[in-house]
Amino acid sequence: MAELPPFQTLIDEHAAEVMAVLRGAVGREGAEDAFQETFLAALRAYPSLREARNLRGWLVTIAHRKAIDHHRARGRAPLPVEAVREEAVFDPDPTDGTEIWRAVAALPPKQRAAVTLRFASDLPHEEIAAALGCSPAAARRSLHEGLKRLRKEMA
């Protein structure tokens, strides 16, 4: 059996990042629930985990499954981007990337997930593929399509 560190270590080291990834993938509104679901699922599975390497990748993968569940539950309804835009922008820093994340949030689910996983979580294509349940080639394609669309949006 693998020597698993106390679960609290995973929270201390990765909770903030998992939350950021989920905000990117499902938006601020859905992120809290997806965060709870992610860590509860991780806690449930943790003792039977065989492998203590790359616990971060493991958590991010679960987070993405939960993000995908979230979108499925909403029947893949597009995020209400306009509604979000009408809210006050709390962070006045124009370089904080808010615009780009709004554009990311408006992408179709697979593209959005691929872009978030690649740039918010810095996952390699293989792990993105694992998280999305597709081939690395398909993951690469989703990422490519997503980026192409973002470039057009942001131009």
Binding site: E3, L4, P5, P6, F7, Q8, I11, Y46, P47
Partner: peptide, 9 residues
């Protein structure tokens, strides 16, 4: 974590 359970919070 090793002797009881790794679900230590």
């Amino acid at each position: 974590a090793g002797r009881i359970s790794p679900r230590v919070l």
